[in-house]
């Protein structure tokens, strides 16, 4: 049976684990700073201060 050695696992995590982390980071940055998301973020952060206390339907 194919055995994964300790070194293989460490090498895998040190390379692909790092790429995974960086890729994840870039995606989050892109989402947070995507220009067209500004509107919905601004709305979200102010809409919780509205005083209306009823569900929409």
């Amino acid at each position: 049976m194919f055995e994964i050695s300790h070194e293989t696992l460490v090498a895998f995590s040190k390379s692909w684990g790092l790429f995974y982390l960086m890729g994840f980071f870039l995606c989050v940055i892109a989402y947070a700073f995507w220009p067209s998301n500004r509107m919905r973020f601004d709305r979200a952060k102010t809409s919780i201060l509205d005083r209306e206390d009823k569900p929409w339907k």
Binding site: V28, F33, K45, L49
Partner: peptide, 19 residues
Amino acid sequence: PVRAQRPIFSYRLSILSFW
């Protein structure tokens, strides 16, 4: 934010810190 009656300082920062 509700108690202070002020929106959160940076919504984007809240997303970054969430992830």
